[in-house]
Amino acid sequence: MAADATSAVTPPPAPAGICAGRVVIVTGAGRGLGRAHARAYAAEGAKVVVNDLGVGPDGSGESDGPGEPGGPAHAVAEEIRAAGGEAVAHGGDIATPEGAASLVRAALDTYGRLDTLVNNAGFLRDRMLVNLDEDDWDAVMRVHLKGHFLPLKHASGHWRAEAKAGRVPHACVVNTSSGAGLQGSVGQGNYSAAKAGILGLTLVAAAELAAYGVRVNAIAPTARTRMTERTFADTMAVPEPCAFDAMAPGNVSPLVVWLGSTASAGVTGRVFEAEAGRITVMEGWRPGPTADKGVRWTPSEAGEAARGLLADAEPPRPVYGAR
């Protein structure tokens, strides 16, 4: 019997998942957390722009040009396509205006839209403060802070134009901070300062971009990556087969995928810690004990008042690595 003509042209079913049909950019997606995020988004039906410059853990080494095959961005994009998903590689430097602009264009030119931006790219140059060179300070600030700001700026420009044209998007940004940004880390003054700056940027962006249909949140993840090999050396062992791998990067990705989907509607300006099977909403700086004299204090009076307030205040969380 001849095949039914109607059934012969029936399109394949739309991809399932909470991000079906969405277009997602993930920076620093060639390895570690970024790779896990990109693959997890694709598994939930998203079309993914995989960005990675292809440099070493300290930012050194040769980079992969935007059109050069064989680098980590291309490898991850190929992994996604081999699994039946859709992905395109981008090897540009997102800490430059040109690279960030081309990243957004890659999404729009390839897929015709952009729904979610995951800012994840970064590297380390650890030194104690007295040994920290200005170049190491500037390089870490550049990749983390400028590498968050510029993609956010260019993506937001597109979303603002869409909103002004009457097409208010359901857009999401997920920024990547760190426990070092929340409480500091010995030997990582540059990294801690950059990651704390990302938290401030997240709060401002959430407030400024809400009118354009853009939500902005941040995560502070803990997982096994090239960047954490020395920091968590004692807890990095891969577990026995069938045991839960608490340090696997993929443990963080479900929250990141949810934050980048329409399912997280109404959630913005928030910071989450994510590690193993644990998710924590961080509550940030809030007023604690206070005293108001009503007029100017003398130094002695101010000190006495501060001592009294500190006695009633919650102690700060210890800095990572402090003794």
Rank of each mutant, 00 (worst) to 15 (best):
G92H: 11
T6P: 00
T228F: 06
A274R: 08
A100H: 05
N175A: 13
G45I: 02
A180F: 08
D136M: 11
A206G: 03
G30E: 04
A8N: 09
P318M: 12
E304D: 15
A311G: 15
I25S: 01
A161K: 08
G288V: 03
A194Q: 08
W297L: 07
A101T: 12
G189H: 01
A16S: 15
V104E: 07
G294N: 01
I80A: 12
P287V: 03
G34S: 13
G179K: 02
I25M: 00
R278K: 12
L103M: 09
G157P: 00
G34R: 13
E229G: 02
I279P: 02
R270S: 15
G303V: 07
W297E: 05
E301Y: 03
S185G: 02
A180T: 11
L103F: 06
M128K: 00
L33T: 03
A302P: 02
Q183W: 06
G59V: 06
I18N: 06
H148P: 01
A89Y: 00
R125K: 15
P57W: 01
M247Y: 02
A305T: 15
L255W: 14
V267W: 08
L108K: 07
W258S: 03
W297I: 03
V49A: 11
R113M: 07
A36Y: 09
P315H: 05
A276D: 11
A218T: 05
I279S: 02
V173T: 03
N120L: 02
H74P: 00
V88I: 13
R296G: 04
T268E: 09
N120A: 01
I80M: 12
G200L: 05
A73V: 04
R226S: 14
K195W: 12
A89E: 06
D4R: 11
E273R: 13
V216W: 07
V23K: 10
G189T: 14
T6I: 14
P299N: 11
L309F: 02
G166R: 00
L309K: 05
M128G: 05
V24D: 01
H158W: 15
S63G: 15
D109P: 12
G28W: 07
T228Q: 10
P69W: 02
P72Q: 12
G284L: 03
G84Q: 13
E229S: 14
E134T: 13
S178C: 09
V9F: 14
A43S: 14
M282Q: 09
V173L: 03
G17I: 01
T176D: 11
L124S: 14
H144M: 10
A14Y: 06
T176G: 09
W285E: 04
D58I: 00
A95P: 03
A95G: 13
C242W: 10
T262H: 09
S102Q: 09
D52I: 05
A106Y: 00
V214F: 11
A322K: 05
I279E: 01
D138F: 04
